[in-house]
Amino acid sequence: MKYYARKTISFVVSLFVITAITFGALQILPGDPALLVLGTEGDPMAVEILREKLGLDDPPLTRYFKWISGVFKGDFGESIRYSTPVSVLLKNAIPVTLSLAFFSVLLAVLIAIPLGITCAVKKGSAWDSFGLIFSQLGMAMPPFWLGILLINFFAVKLGLFPPGGFVSVTTTGVGPFLSSLFLPALALSLPRAAILARMVRASILQTLDQDYIRTARSKGLPHYLVLYKHALRNASVNIFTVAGIQLTQLLAGTIVIEQVFSLPGLGQLLLNGVLQRDLPLVQGLVVVGAGLILFSNLIFDSILGVIDPRIRLD
C-alpha cells in the first residue's frame, strides 16, 4: 500500500511540474492561437474579440489555475483547433495509441525471443550472423520508411492489409481492428525487436554458463525445457525491463507512424495541438500521457515481481 501511496503522490507532483512546464513553453513560443485561427484573413479587431472569447486576455497564472482546477473536476476544456471538448478527443485517441503500443511491444517480444535464443544457442553459426544482420538493419531503418515499404508491399501489391486508417473493435470486430493495426505495429516493432533480440542473446548466453543450467541438463531435462523454462525465465527480467521502457516510449509518442498510417492517435492530436497553439488540448494530452506512462510502469513492475519474486514492490 505504501508503495502505491508513494507513487500517487509522486504522480500528482510530477503532473503539476509537467503541466506548468508545458504551459510555460507554450507561453514563450511565439504564435498567437487567435491569429492562427484567423490566418491571413485576420484583422486586429477580429483577433481582439477572439482572444477575449478564448480567454487569452487573462494573465497566464489565472489561466493556468483555471485550467488545473477544471481538470480536478474532470473538465479539460474545449479544444481551439477542433471546437470539441478535449475529453472527447482524448477518449477517441487513447484506445488507438494504447492498442498500437501494446501490439508493437507484443510483436517485438514475439520476434525477439525465438530469434535471440536461436542466436545464443547456435552462437557463431550462420543463424547467429543472420540474427546480427537483422538487428543491425532493424536498428538502422527509420520506422516511417519501413512503414511506407510495408504499405507498398502488403497493402498495395498484395492487398492483404488496409494502407492506413483505424477501425475500432467495437464497430467492426476484432479482425479488421487487428489488420488495421498490424502494419504500423510491425513497422514500430522491428527496430525494437532488433534491440530486444540482442538483449535476449546476451542474457541467455550469460545464463547458459551457470551451475543450475548444468544441473538441469544433468538431471536429464529435454533441451527445449532447459532453454525455455530455466534459462529464459532468468533472462526474462532483463527482457521485460527493456520491453517496459520501449512501451513507455511508444505511449509517449508515435507521431510519425501515426502520420504515415493516418491513425487518429494521441500523436496526431499533439502535433496539431502544438502547431495551432491549442493550449487546452496540449495540456490534456500531457496529463493523459503522464498517466499512461505511470500506469504502464506499474504494470511492468508487477510483471517483474511475478517473474522474479526477489523483486518486491515494497
Partner: peptide, 15 residues
Amino acid sequence: KIIPEMASAVISLKA
C-alpha cells in the same frame, strides 16, 4: 477521410 500524409493518401488511392 483525414489523411495528413500525402504519400499515404496516394497509396490509399492506388489501393
